[in-house]
Structures are given as structure tokens and as C-alpha cells.
Design a protein around this nucleic acid. Structure first.
Length: 687
RNA sequence: UGCGGGGUGGAGCAGAGGUAGCUCGUUGGGCUCAUAACCCAAAGGUCAGAGGUUCGAAUCCUCUCCCCGCUACCA
């Protein structure tokens, strides 16, 4: 275990930079920010020197596309989302020491310097290749910005990376009559030089550092992914792009080139630390350069390769930086059994949650931690959200606190009794209680936040059990002195719970600290048995959590269903533009006939392919069709169809397909058959 | 298709060689300080399936099936 053999004097904790083309949703929170925040709050509570880094990732092609779609500048796009993201993190209590952004000058400077250092050291390979250039737009064209005629099927709307008509993957140079999608002009070929990081050179080093060095302390999903990448053989990766939006390549003759996003984004962690340093007067260097600093990256599983292989290789190549000690990547969170999707608006947005559930930040933090996708993808449902609030957070934690405080007020006017005259029960309860700081801390240090939270709840359960077994409400009638002891013990449990719950539910912990008049204590103090001094007075008990009713969650479910519906409706206007005019002769070449599916079966080992046997009237033939995700084979036997019968045969998965079934596709990608509305016989011409 | 992760009582998860454990839910009981909350007890599992290694396997090996991500494939 990393922490066992090595002592660290400071911690640098980063959380994946959210991409500034949309707001934050629960998937981001559960995967990255909530666990990172718990970890950091725990460290701070242990008086550790820690800097918690966050920021928006604001470069890259998708942002330029979004800007063009909306007719605004890329800067306007990122300004908008950066503001929303930053604000919602703050309100939600993600306790960044700095929340920066990659469009900030300090980042451009840092990333440039980083590149320059590697460049000067000869760490890059330079390669010149030919790429299409749009002379009117003054732009090199990314693959998908080039259209032309496919050399295989003559489809004249193929893209530079792929022909969507015949599926062949292409390179831009394969296209016949290539055109720029920006201007429609004929692009010219120009030489363009790019720099590559030869990852293959670092393979032996990576092998040793990860496969041997972190065999036991990295999560299995992270380790497995790295191993598979390394074993497959690493290749040089381009670190620059022909694009306007981004960090300019700081080398002569590199006009119109920027650092590729995955190169510049992780450097953003360093820039952000510098920004923090400028603001606070702390030196940033020890956090990134001293061997006694522990660097931890919190990320989602989609980012494993960048943070475990590429960024470390960059840091290693640069030479003066430390490497991540751990990269606790989480899996994904689904929402109501469906993949969370920004573009489909299938998400619970943080900024909306904060408005619709005011004062319930901790409820979401609790639910996302209790159900965190630590070892596999998990599902968030509103019903589960409600149940965890009502049956766990409120019933176990909130209720224990409340009954203890109410009893103290009822019998002793809120004065904390002395921890005296302990019997065996009391001693046992206190003994169990005192084991919690170490137990919970251990789980947190192993990045097992679900387990840590469950232990925290066990402390509240211990309290509930203790109260019930010692029934002060009964004993008071005969022995009020004994009740003093019972409540003294219970109050110490409340106090300990308050301190230990701070990383998980900081808002409630703060409220509770104030309510019971606890002085600001940290994790180390919490090891002591008596946290709340005898004789101090606790305030009037207020409820920490309230019940969430059926209507509240039904409203949210309805909102999601509405979203789904709205998506379907809204998607209609986004129709593809009409294609180029064709002559009747061209159309007449196509022989489209009515037919009937006689039988269908799934092509083994494929997801989408069905092997269909079709009666075309002319003959009976085999067609392979990519509709398996939409139709079960048994459901479509007997289905009337229209099909293109004179399409050139093609082999798919070893089966020759003779023709193509006509399907209509909506903007969600859903398919439906196009078939005669009356009982026409097979083989009728469609024209 | 390749690679990675995962499949454990109704739901959500833990366990990683010695005959399954936690939370929620369910049922019965107790309590009445507490937000119909709390406490006790019970029911509920051939640990995806089939082979194998072992005195012994949920745990190791082989094969198969299913889910997720990246990838391929939607004529």
C-alpha cells in the first residue's frame, strides 16, 4: 500500500476538468467531484497540507463546432458554461482551492512552456504530411470537414474519415472530388508539420512504473485498462493540431497550430495550481515537484488512458515533475436505467437540482456516495434517492441526533451532563464509538468512499441502539442520575458523528456543529472520547433532514419523461438538407420491389446484424441488415418490406448480402419499415 | 470483433481458498424519547452456467452466456 511505506508532507488532488460545452450533471458528481471532495475534506480535517484543483477544459473541436452552430465565438461558449459550472460547484460545496480554466493566460503560458521544454529537449518527433487546406477559409480541414465521392461506392457525400453510405473507413486523400464542408470550395493539399510524442519509447518505463509499481494499490479497472494498452503496444501520438482555438504552438513556423486538447488539458492542473499560488502567496512548486508530495487524480473511466499513460509520460519526459501516486477512476452512473447524455438532455443537472431542492445539497451528496459507481456502472433512480433520504439519512442519522437533543432538552434544559458513573454498557458503547475515526479514515484512504459512508452510518446506528437499550425515557422516572450518564454518552456519539460526517455531508455537519455548540474540531481531535464538554449548553434542536414525499420524486420522473418526449419532438426540425438533384435516369436505375421477410436470425457475435431470408417475388434471397437492435427476429417474420434488389452484393461477417431493405430513420436513430400499406404481392415495382 | 470492467437473497452492494455478510425492502414482535422514525427476531441465496484444480471454491484454471465502456459491425 502506497501510504504504508511512504510518508507524504503534502497532497495535490486534481479532479477531471469538465468540458465547458455543457453544465454539470450527477454523473460527473458521482464519478469525480463528490469522491474527490470527500477525500480532500478528510485530508484537511487531518491537518494535511492539501491543494484541491479544478477547472474548465475549454479547448478542442467540439467547442468550435458549438460556437459555429450558435453563431457566437468559442470564447462566448466557454464563458457561458464556465460560469454555470463554477457557480454550481460552489453552491454544492465542492471545496476547490482553485477553480481555473484553460482559456486563462496563465494556462496558455504554462502549457506553452511545457511544450517548449519538451521541444527543446528533443522529446518530440516531427512529421510532415499532406493535408487538405481551404484557401478561402484559411484553414486546414479536419477529416470530418471534408466531403467527396467515395472511391468504393461512388456515394458523393462521403466524409474524410468514413463513407456513411458504404461504411468503408477512408482517409481524406482517398476521396474523389474532395470539397471543404466549410466553404464548399475545392481544398488544396498542403504540407503540414506536426509534433508527436513517441509513447512507444516510454513503454519499458511505463511497464515498470505501472505494471510492477502499482500492481497492488491501483483499482483493478484502472490497472487492467493500462495493462491492456501497454500490452497492445503504444504508438506515437500527435500533440498538435491545425486549428485556431487553443494554445498556440510556441515554435517558429507553427502558425495556425495549437496544442491538441489532451496535451493541454492535464497541464491545466499545473496552471490552476499556479493561479492558486498567485492568489494565496503559496509556492506551487513543491506540490508538483517534491517527492514528498502525493499527487492523486480523480477521474471517470473514460479518462484512464490520458491520466495513467499519456500525462505521466509527458511529466516523465519533462523531467522535473512528480507522478500520480494513484488514479482512482470511477465507472459510470446511469439515470433511470438509461445512459446519461448531455446531447439527449437525459441527466439531472446540478444547477437545476440546486434550485429545485434548496437546502438539500447533502441529500444528493449522500445518495451519490452511497451508490457511487466504484467498481461497476450504477443506476441513479429517483425512487432510490427518496428511499435513501427517508430510510437512511433521515431515519438513522437525523433521527438519532434529534432524539438525543430532544431528550437532553426535555430532562436537563440542554445542559450536557458529565461523562461519569459509567457501567459496562456505557464503556462498551464508548469503546465501539472510538474505533470509528480510524475505521472510516482507512476506507477513505483506500478510496472506498461507499464503505466509509456506510461505516459512518453504523456510528449513528450504534447511537440508536444504545439509546433504545438504555431507554432513558423510562429510567428517568426512577433514576434521573442514570439518565445523565446515558445522555452524556449519546451526546458524545452525536459530537463524534458531527466531526466524522463533515467530509460527506458538510452542510449538515456545519449546522449540527452550530446547534450543539461544538467548537471546530477536526479528525484528529475526534479520536478523543469526550468532545462535548460537560456543562456546555446545546441549542434548540432543529431537524437536519426532511422527508421527501412521493410527489417530489414523481415530479422529477415526470420531468425526465417530458424531456424524452420533448427530445422526440424537438428533433424533427433538425432534418438533413436535401441532397443534390439526380436525374430520372439515375433514379430509374434502382430496382425497388415489394417483398416479405420469410425468416430472420441474429448473425452470431454481432449486435446489430440480422440475416434475413426474403421473398422478393423474383427469387428468395439473403440480405444482411443492421436492424437487430430495433427488431427481434421472431417479430418480423412475415413483415412486408420494400427493398432495393439490384444493389451490388456485399459480404458482411462472411454472409453475402443481396440487396437492402428500405428503412426510415428518425433523428433518435430509431428505425421503422417502409412497406406497402395494402396487401400487394411480392415483386411489385416501387417507383 | 478485440480489449477492459462486471454478473452474489426482492433492490443496492461487500467478500476473493475453509461451507456466505451488510444496507434497504418484506413479515412478526418490542418501544413510545424521536421526522409512522428507533430496537429485536424471522423468512429469503444451488454466489450467471458447464467443466476442471484442491481434502475443501462465490473465491484459482478453462469454456459458454448476459450487462457496461472504448472498438468493430449497421449495403
Amino acid at each position: 500500500m502506497e501510504t504504508k511505506n511512504k510518508h507524504f508532507n503534502r497532497y495535490t488532488v486534481t479532479s477531471a476538468l469538465p468540458y465547458a460545452n455543457g453544465p454539470i450533471h450527477i454523473g460527473h458528481l458521482a464519478g469525480v467531484y463528490v469522491p474527490a471532495d470527500i477525500y480532500v475534506r478528510y485530508l484537511r480535517s487531518n491537518n494535511k497540507d492539501v491543494v484541491f484543483i479544478g477547472g474548465s477544459d475549454e479547448h478542442g473541436v467540439p467547442i468550435t463546432i458549438k460556437a459555429r452552430q450558435q453563431g457566437i465565438s468559442p470564447q462566448e461558449v466557454v464563458d457561458k458554461y464556465h460560469a454555470i459550472i463554477k457557480d454550481s460547484f460552489e453552491k454544492f460545496g465542492i471545496s476547490f482551492d482553485v477553480y481555473s480554466r484553460t482559456s486563462d493566460p496563465i494556462h496558455h503560458e504554462t502549457a506553452s512552456e511545457f511544450f517548449k521544454k519538451l521541444y527543446d529537449d528533443g522529446a518530440f518527433i516531427e512529421k510532415t504530411s499532406q493535408q487538405y487546406y481551404d484557401e478561402e477559409a484559411n484553414h486546414f480541414l479536419a477529416d470530418r470537414y471534408i466531403t467527396g465521392t467515395c472511391p468504393h461506392c461512388n456515394n458523393d457525400r462521403a466524409y474524410g474519415d468514413q463513407c456513411e453510405s458504404c461504411g468503408t473507413s477512408l482517409s481524406p486523400l482517398d476521396l474523389i472530388n474532395a470539397r471543404s464542408a466549410l466553404s464548399g470550395n475545392v481544398p488544396v493539399l498542403r504540407d503540414t508539420k506536426h509534433w508527436y510524442l513517441p509513447l512507444n519509447d516510454y513503454e519499458p518505463w511505463l511497464r515498470e512504473w505501472i505494471l510492477e509499481g502499482h500492481k497492488d494499490d491501483w483499482k483493478s479497472n484502472v490497472y487492467g485498462q493500462c495493462k491492456s494498452w501497454i500490452d497492445q503496444g503504444l504508438q506515437a501520438r500527435a500533440v498538435t493540431r491545425d486549428l485556431e482555438w487553443g494554445v498556440k504552438v510556441p515554435v517558429d513556423g507553427a502558425d495556425g497550430k495549437v496544442l491538441y486538447v489532451w496535451f493541454d488539458a492535464p497541464i491545466g492542473y499545473i496552471s490552476a495550481t499556479k493561479e492558486w499560488s498567485e492568489k494565496t502567496g503559496n509556492d506551487w512548486k513543491p506540490y508538483w515537484k517534491n517527492e514528498d508530495s502525493k499527487l492523486v487524480h480523480f477521474i471517470g473511466k473514460d479518462n484512464i488512458v490520458f491520466h495513467c499513460i499519456i500525462f505521466p509520460a509527458m511529466l516523465h519526459a519533462e523531467g522535473s515533475y512528480i507522478l500520480p501516486e494513484n488514479v482512482p477512476a470511477n465507472e459510470f452512473l446511469n439515470l433511470e436505467s438509461d445512459k446519461i447524455s448531455t446531447s439527449r438532455n437525459w441527466a439531472v443537472w446540478l444547477h437545476e437540482y440546486l434550485e429545485e431542492f434548496p437546502g438539500k445539497e447533502d441529500v444528493l451528496r449522500y445518495v451519490l456516495t452511497a451508490n457511487a459507481p466504484e467498481t461497476k456502472d450504477n443506476d441513479f433512480t429517483w425512487k432510490d434517492f427518496q428511499a435513501r433520504n427517508n430510510n437512511e439519512l433521515l431515519a438513522v442519522y437525523g433521527n438519532f441526533v434529534n432524539r438525543t437533543l430532544v431528550l437532553t432538552h426535555k430532562y436537563f434544559d440542554g445542559v450536557v451532563p458529565a461523562l461519569a458513573n459509567l457501567n459496562e454498557n456505557d464503556i462498551e458503547a464508548l469503546r465501539l464509538m472510538d474505533a470509528f475515526p480510524a475505521k472510516i479514515g482507512e476506507s477513505i484512504e483506500l478510496y472506498r468512499f461507499r464503505e466509509a459512508l456506510s461505516e459512518l452510518m453504523n456510528l449513528a446506528r450504534l447511537g440508536n441502539k444504545y439509546l433504545t437499550e438504555n431507554e432513558p425515557w423510562k429510567v428517568f422516572k426512577t433514576d434521573p442520575e442514570r439518565v445523565k450518564t446515558v445522555l452524556a454518552v449519546s451526546l458524545q456519539i452525536v459530537a463524534k458523528l458531527t466531526v466524522l460526517s463533515e467530509p460527506f455531508v458538510p452542510f449538515s455537519a456545519a449546522k449540527l456543529t452550530q446547534m450543539i455548540g461544538l467548537k471546530k474540531l477536526n479528525w484528529i481531535d475526534a479520536v478523543a472520547t469526550e468532545l462535548l464538554p460537560a456543562g456546555s449548553v446545546i441549542g434548540t434542536p432543529e431537524l437536519l433532514f426532511e422527508r421527501i414525499e412521493d410527489v417530489d420524486v414523481e415530479k422529477q420522473v415526470q420531468k425526465l419523461l417530458d424531456t424524452k418526449k420533448a427530445n422526440l419532438e424537438a428533433s424533427e426540425p433538425v432534418l438533413k438538407p436535401q441532397k443534390e438533384t439526380v436525374s430520372y435516369e439515375d433514379f430509374a436505375k434502382m430496382d425497388i420491389r415489394t417483398g416479405t421477410i420469410i425468416s430472420a436470425e441474429i448473425v452470431p457475435k454481432t449486435k446489430k446484424l440480422l440475416k434475413l431470408t426474403i421473398d422478393t417475388g423474383i427469387d428468395t434471397r439473403t440480405v444482411v441488415s443492421g436492424i437487430a437492435e430495433h427488431y427481434a427476429p421472431e417479430a418480423i417474420t412475415g413483415q412486408k418490406v420494400c427493398m432495393l434488389v439490384n444493389l451490388a452484393p456485399r459480404e458482411l461477417r462472411g454472409i453475402v448480402s443481396n440487396g437492402m431493405i428500405l428503412m426510415a430513420e428518425n433523428s433518435e436513430g430509431k428505425l421503422c419499415f417502409v412497406s406497402p400499406t395494402e396487401a400487394f404481392h411480392n415483386g411489385c415495382e416501387v417507383k
